[in-house]
Amino acid sequence: MSQATLEAKTVELPRKAASAKDFKGRVEPDWCPGCGDFGVLNALQRAVFELGLQPHQLMVVSGIGCSSNLPGYINANGMHTLHGRSLPFATGAKLANHELTVIATGGDGDGYGIGCGHFMHSARRNIDITYIVMDNQIYGLTTGQISPTSRLDMKTKSTPMGNLESPLNPLTSAIMAGATYVARGFSGDPKHLTELMKGAVKHKGFALIDVFSPCVTFNNDNDYPFFKARVKRLEDVGHDPSDWKSACERAMEWGDTLYTGLFFKTERPSLDGSEPVLQKGPGLARRPLGLTAEQAKSLKARMM
C-alpha cells in the first residue's frame, strides 16, 4: 500500500450512542471488588453518553497504575501508555487531531508523582483535555506504598514508621498552574461525578477532576466511611467557581469537611484553540503530506 495522502473524510453528523452500555469495553475490569474506580468508569461512560458522543470520537489516554487500566474497560479509542506520561500522549493526540474529544485518566501516583511536571505544564498550556485522576492516596498496583497525596504520618509498606512528607494539594496546584476547570468528585457520588465530567468535557481548556476513589485493599485510612462522613458538595454551601480566592480557600480545607464540586472555572484560550496551524482545515492527521511545489521552491530560494 502506498497512499501518499490521507484523504479528508466526509464528516458524518454524530449519531448518538444508543446507551451508556455502548461504551462498555471488550473486557471486564480487573479491579478489586469495591474499588472506587468502578464508580469513576461508570460515571465516565454515562457522561460521554449523555453528551451525545460516539466511541470513535473519543480518545481515552492513561498512564500506568490500577486506575490507568481504564482505557481497556471503555469502548473508545485508547492509549494505555507509560507511567506518568498520559498527558504528553494525550496532548500529542489532541494536537494531531483536535476533532477528537480527549480524556486522560490515571491515579495520584501517576499524575501527581512521576507525571507531576506534565500535569503543571498541561494546565499552563490549557490544552483542551479532561484529566480525571482517581486519587486513592496510595500506590495500589505496587501493593501499598505512600503516594504524593498520602497524609502525614500515614503508615504504609514504604513508611512503616509513618509518612514524614506532607501531601500535595492537586486542586490548588492545578489552579496555580493555570488550569481553567478544577473540580473534585467522589466515586461514591456517581451522579454528581457524572455532572462534573460533563462540564469538564464541554469546557474548552484543561480540566482537572480529582476524584476520591478509595482503595479498599491497601488504604485503610481513606476508605468509604472516611469520605462519606466528610464529603460535602460545594453547591450545597453556595460557592462561586469564578471566585478564585474562595476556590483556593475551599480547596485548602482538609478536615471534618471535604468539599466536592466545581471549585474554579475561568475562560482562557486553549492551546489548540490558539495554535494558528489548527485554525483552518481538518485535524492535522487528515491533511495531505509533504510539500507543495510552491513551498519547495520557496524553501530552496531561501537557501540561495
Binding site: 490521507l6 480518545m59 489516554v61 492509549m79 501508555t81 507509560l82 506520561r85 504528553p88 500522549f89 494525550a90 496532548t91 500529542g92 493526540a93 494536537l95 494531531a96 487531531n97 477528537l100 511536571g117 506534565h118 503543571m120 505544564h121 495554535e275 494558528p276 496551524v277 489548527l278 485535524g283 492535522l284 492527521a285 487528515r286 491533511r287 510539500l291 513551498q295
Partner: peptide, 29 residues
C-alpha cells in the same frame, strides 16, 4: 513550521517531547 502546516512545540522536558511525539504519531501524523 507554521507556514508549512507543521505543529511545532517546545515541551517541558525530553520525556514529554518523546511521549507527545508518539501520541501525535499514533493519532495519524
Amino acid at each position: 513550521g507554521r507556514g508549512l502546516g507543521i505543529m511545532v512545540r517546545q515541551v517541558e522536558d525530553e520525556i514529554g517531547v518523546a511521549n507527545m511525539t508518539i501520541g501525535a504519531a499514533h493519532t495519524g501524523v
